[in-house]
Design a protein around this nucleic acid. Structure first.
Lengths: 206, 206, 206, 206
DNA sequence: TATGAATGAGTGTTCATTCAT
DNA sequence: AATGAATGAACACTCATTCAT
């Protein structure tokens, strides 16, 4: 599993905590959150059932913890990488590539984030998914920067565009994950996606 | 509830069947599929718990039935409407408008389809979501038609584009549903979305 | 089991309700409330585990229900019987006899009431044991009546006396229940108890 | 806490042992034995959970130890004090006063003894409560002595009387402890109780 | 068809107890 | 002796499903 936060957090420096998170990602992605038993996670993590409750408040908390740490990780990876670029076009292209690459390298995690999390009502309604908005903001910033620097048209509302772009990337990522026999490499999807977002469907001759 | 299939189906001509489906949409969208009890649905439908099992095999079947009938309905609505148009641009524009409009008019249903269904493993993995692919195909046909008629660039792979476009629409629709205070009308979202998909982010002067 | 309320209450007219109450009295008195499993009660009552929850909110509620119905029963039995008497001395004597007799005829129930209930914190602290106070009041009324009619000394505070008298009866009843080989019949205990309470330890010659 | 045995016992000379016993009395009296966690006791005692098992075999043993040490303490206090008296009337009066006074000064302990212990099946059935019988014997001795010296009537069976008397004292003590706003001082209860036991309810003129 | 009381398998969570340090 | 992280058996309670009426 690529998912490896730098060990700064006390919790994360703990072996058991990581083992449980990793096990939960595996189990939840395979069986679905609601069909997974805490005992299943414990078995895969090679800890006792009760041990999970030393690190997580309950089963929901386990799911939310996966989300929070993952989004932190995604956010840091992407943000760090984008900093090295100045051209908004490059940034947008790289963002798409990075997201698809990260999903590719953490497929189980991606399934949990995209499939399981969306239906956790505790998560979608009660819990404010700040980290997700933070991630979305990365796209918005690229668009606004691109508009300011006259790379992108100002006719497009960045608020709507960031959602549309995220949705497009997310859907492709999901399809890609659920495909058993990948019909094209994720790099190809990234390339096409960038082209679509930047040029649109319009003929160049237009 | 707008969701009203033309009564051709024997099942649908039955009052109880419809009452249960409608109740399930309400309950599932509010509480989530896994947190909804069959008894909750029965109470809202004003039938006995056991009655539900006269019309549906089990709880999962209830969810899948919602999906199938809804997709049929969506598909018919959109397909019928698109037939009146010949220009691929108009078709794409109308498709986006229709989808957002239908979501707008059937918000509870949309929540079930977008949020709950995605995490039903029985559905995502075992059940082949033919009806969904059929719906996606509508987009693909528009693109291919547009490419053939030289409205759209051929550089874009229709397979990837249909997913990206659906993802963009879907994500905006989801955001729109979950927003408590709508910051913009869905017609505005449709307009922006079309512009983005057709023109991309590129400056026109480019 | 003698414990048979007249069937006026809707709940009590139900066979399962009574079977569960009776089973719970048996099981709780034998194993203790905290060591009894709900499944044990279900097995003795010959119902499914879940059935218990159709009639009782939870395990605590089962205990409290036993208490409430029993106290009603005790109260009614004793009150009805006392009404036929006018002399406070006879009343006091009969009260003691009745209580010991009822305990004798409902030993399992008595164990639950005296032993298990006392340690149920939900019961002792949160729940106001109105029915118990009602029962205590019977003693107080006898004392006050006796004092008014000049059968009993007015030097004794009825409030304190009712508690002391109840405690004495209760303790003897408890000892009597827990004795494996009864060293004396409960009627003998009643007789001695009355004498002690009425005459005290003082020599008659005094 | 008044509860302080003279340090003769090796165990009791140990600071941790006492801290745990004291903590257990506090915790058990407040939350009830079955609702108390060993961890709660450990926290109040300011020791580690595991430390408790260095001094006590298990949770039950902790409760029984409280009982044994307390009864020893009660027994010694009362026995010592009674030795200074020769008149059975004085002894009886003093016994009542002492018991109520000890309960008054050790309310948490009294709650554990009267409320929690009674429902510990391990205790009530398996464990022979020798120390309790020893305590009861103090009352019996007073009665027999009083009967022999012609202070008390011989018509009363000492076996039954000791139970009745203990029950009366015990019940008043329990009421007194559980009363939030004490309606009378415990000395008053003692006085009334003695009068009731000695003179009974009978009018003096009788 | 319709009912809803009854079922009982299934599971999240607790907590007394252990044991490596 | 003392710790407290880890254990895992135990259990109250839920709820999809059935079936006698």
């Amino acid at each position: 599993m690529i998912f490896q936060l730098p060990i700064t957090d006390k919790k994360l420096s703990n072996d058991k905590y990581k083992k449980i998170i990793d096990a939960a990602i595996k189990v939840f992605s395979k069986q679905g959150f609601y069909n997974s038993k805490v005992a299943d996670v414990a078995k895969v993590a090679e800890v006792a059932d009760g041990t999970i409750y030393l690190y997580f408040k309950n089963k929901d908390d386990l799911l939310i913890s996966i989300f929070e740490h993952s989004m932190d990780y995604f956010f840091q990876q992407v943000q760090k990488d984008l900093k090295t670029l100045s051209c908004p076009l490059d940034k947008l292209k790289r963002f798409i590539e990075l997201h698809l690459m990260l999903v590719h390298k953490n497929q189980n995690l991606a399934i949990v984030l995209q499939v399981e999390l969306r239906s956790s009502h505790k998560f979608m309604k009660e819990y404010q998914a700040e980290k997700f908005f933070q991630y979305l903001k990365l796209i918005e910033d690229i668009i606004l920067d691109g508009q300011e620097k006259n790379f992108f048209t100002k006719e497009i509302n960045a608020e709507i565009a960031k959602r549309a772009i995220f949705g497009a990337i997310d859907e492709l990522a999901l399809e890609w994950i659920l495909m058993k026999h990948k019909r094209y490499p994720h790099e190809e999807a990234a390339k096409q996606l960038f082209q679509l977002i930047y040029n649109g469907l319009k003929l160049k001759a237009d």
